[in-house]
Computed example of a mutant assay.
Amino acid sequence: MSLRVVVVDDSGFFRRRIVEILNADVGIEVVGTAANGQEAIEVVKHLNPDVVTMDIEMPVMDGITAVRRIMAESPRPILMFSTLTTEGAKATLDALDAGAMDFLPKRFSEMAKDEDSAKILLRRRVRALGRTRFTRPTAPAPLDRPAPTGATPPTAPARAAVAPRLSPSATPLNSLRAVLIGTSTGGPVALQEVLKGLPKSFPLPIILVQHMPASFTPAFAERLNNLCQIDVKEAASGDVLKPGSALLAPGGVQLILEGGAQPRVRIEESPPGTIYKPSVDITFRSAAAALRSQVLAVVLTGMGADGREGARELKANGAHVWAQDAASCVVFGMPAAVIDAGLADQILPLKEVGPALVKGFC
């Protein structure tokens, strides 16, 4: 059965373009369109699509208001189209807070290096969101014991994972020097959920790696800083890791951890061929080299497998790795990759990640 999609945009040209791109995928069918948020609410009620694509700025009713109404009345995955500007970033973050699950740049040239790649990315994102369900079981995983190596969370499909050889024992939590958190699709809301529960006195520095455009990360860091008790800022080269502070990797580049008596970060351009900018794998690998076992790496919701190979290097050095469970993920891709590789010491629902950090370190 094809994935049913409704496309919402006030531009007739853009609507037709998105319809054409999505309908070119045999697994996707655009079943309706709307020219503003008010129309979108009615069309969604009538057609009951699996996914909605939504513009932000529209007449009659804007996209953020429409998202809020749809998520209150008939919730389903919504993909926002955004401009890569400061104002566009703030509006997109507002839309994610309202319940939208993902976003893409409205200009295809900002989405991928060529138009064909952009079309593939759009279809892939829609298909991933189409697999999201809103009626998931929420039984929490236990916090007081690690998940068995290679274990699959109760809500995930069975997998035949082969556990790698790991170090015989991990470094005690009370001797760690940093917490690293990597995420992608669904990450902005997930990071807010995790960080807002941490006290200002949280004793470790935190490094955040969120797949996000360069124009979005300053606004996102500012938003997190306003919402949280800990300090949050966009990272810059030379920033020192401080307890009770979080550094957000800037978009479009890579965050590298440097060791020593006072660990700090370095921001550098991406190696040729790098897909993710910033990349969780690159930051995790640098942490494995700089801090060895004295790290807790947390992999949250996201598409793909970024973070798995970096987690493997950290784990081989005796570091701790936690992963978000399937039931609470927007897209169970990145955490699934870590879990399937047998790298997760803990598999936690999103709402328990923050309390587990407080319990482990405060």
Rank of each mutant, 00 (worst) to 15 (best):
L208E: 00
L191D: 02
R145G: 08
R177I: 02
P142W: 03
R123E: 11
A128Q: 14
E193M: 07
A163H: 01
R124I: 10
V126P: 12
I120P: 04
T152W: 08
A160E: 10
P157A: 09
P157E: 12
T135G: 07
R127M: 15
L204R: 01
L173G: 08
A158T: 13
R145Q: 12
A160Q: 13
R124A: 14
T185H: 01
L121C: 12
E193K: 09
A163C: 03
T132L: 09
V162H: 12
T135V: 10
L198Y: 00
G150N: 08
R127K: 15
P164M: 04
A170Q: 12
L191E: 02
R125G: 03
P137S: 09
P203T: 08
L129K: 07
P154C: 06
R136C: 03
P142V: 03
T155M: 10
P153T: 01
R159V: 11
P140C: 05
R159I: 11
V189S: 13
S175A: 10
L198A: 04
P164Y: 00
L129I: 12
P157D: 09
A118M: 10
L121M: 14
K119M: 13
F202I: 05
A151I: 12
A141W: 02
A118H: 08
I206V: 11
A156H: 08
P153V: 03
L191Y: 05
G187E: 00
A156E: 08
V209F: 05
A128K: 14
A141Y: 04
R136V: 08
V162I: 15
A178S: 10
A163L: 09
R125C: 02
T183K: 04
V126R: 13
L129Q: 04
K196F: 08
L208W: 04
L176A: 03
P199I: 01
R177L: 07
L129S: 10
D144N: 15
S175R: 10
A139K: 15
N174W: 05
R131I: 03
T135P: 00
L122R: 03
L180Q: 02
R125D: 05
L166G: 00
S117K: 10
I206M: 06
L173D: 12
F202L: 07
L129Y: 07
L208D: 02
R136T: 14
T183Q: 05
T171H: 13
R145M: 11
L173Y: 15
S167P: 00
I207P: 09
T149L: 11
A139H: 12
L143C: 10
S117T: 07
G182V: 00
A161G: 15
E193I: 04
A151M: 10
R165G: 02
A128P: 10
R133C: 11
T149D: 15
G130P: 00
L122S: 04
G182F: 02
P164A: 00
P168Q: 10
G130S: 03
T138D: 07
E193C: 07
K200I: 12
T149P: 08
P154N: 06
I207S: 09
R124L: 14
A178Q: 01
N174V: 10
S201N: 12
I181V: 14
G186T: 04
A128R: 11
S184V: 13
R165V: 01
Q192G: 14
L191G: 01
